[in-house]
Amino acid sequence: MVLFDHVWKFNLLDVDLHIPKGTVLGVIGSSGSGKTTFLRLASGLLEPYSGHIRICGKDPVRSRKEISEEISVLFANVPVYSDKSTVMEGLLETKSIYGLSDEEFDKNLEHVSEMLSFRSMYGSKPKTLSLGQKRRAELGMAFLRNVSLYIFDEPCIGLDQNGKEAFKKLVYEKKEEGATLLVSSHDMEEIAGIADRILVLDEGKVFFYGSVEELHKRLIPMEVCTVEYSGRCPDISDIEIEKLTIEKNVMKIWYNSNHVSSGEVLERICETTTVESINVRRTGLGEIIKTAEAGRK
């Protein structure tokens, strides 16, 4: 679906990857790591210095008009509504540009406006809306058409929790319909919640590209088990752990899931004490990236 063949552009260095159809790709990395450049290249707004990019087998720059029917983009800080028009006028303009039928337009608009709760903004001009309201209306515009590739650069900026949930649901729906979605964000946990694959960019280089599972396994397969017990202190001395803390009746154990499974840890604890409550948590994606970056530097 999306192919980057040894692409160099600005600070992006030798990006070489293939994103299969129907994938939700989360693009993460610190500021200036090349996330926006990556998405702009994928949309055909930038041309690589060297290497090739193919979207559905076509060059996105040379076939921009052709593939524009097949992609929907939303970039941070790029207005999609004119300040002179109302939200509805902007939506109707999109309908006319892409030749959407009345039925398709009404059905899709009804659905996205319901999900993103922006119906009340139809008659408003973008400059009169708050950042969050504007973002809802912009996402509504981006999801209005059924296309095969959606590109979102920091789509959740300004959105409240409900808005973020609505965005996630829409992403799942589009994925179910077979679309490919590229989503960049600073919020790594947010990305981890929706993406099948993660692309971690670091100073323009591909630091990691693969599934969230692989990311955990390969980078820091750390898990944290928190146990509240009522009997004697659990004896886990024969288990290989990274770190252990005990505070009152709460024991916190950090261990490498590549070496020890959660099952083994839990079994041993239950054998040696009476457990009141137990919680196993994976290290957050943000923590993983931070730790990995720190380790590398």
């Binding site: 707004l45 921009r64 524009s68 992609i71 983009v73 800080n77 790029v78 207005p79 999609v80």
Partner: peptide, 11 residues
């Protein structure tokens, strides 16, 4: 305002 990017991607 950067909306040239939106314009360039229109068919």
């Amino acid at each position: 305002d950067g909306s040239i990017a939106t314009e360039m991607l229109l068919p």
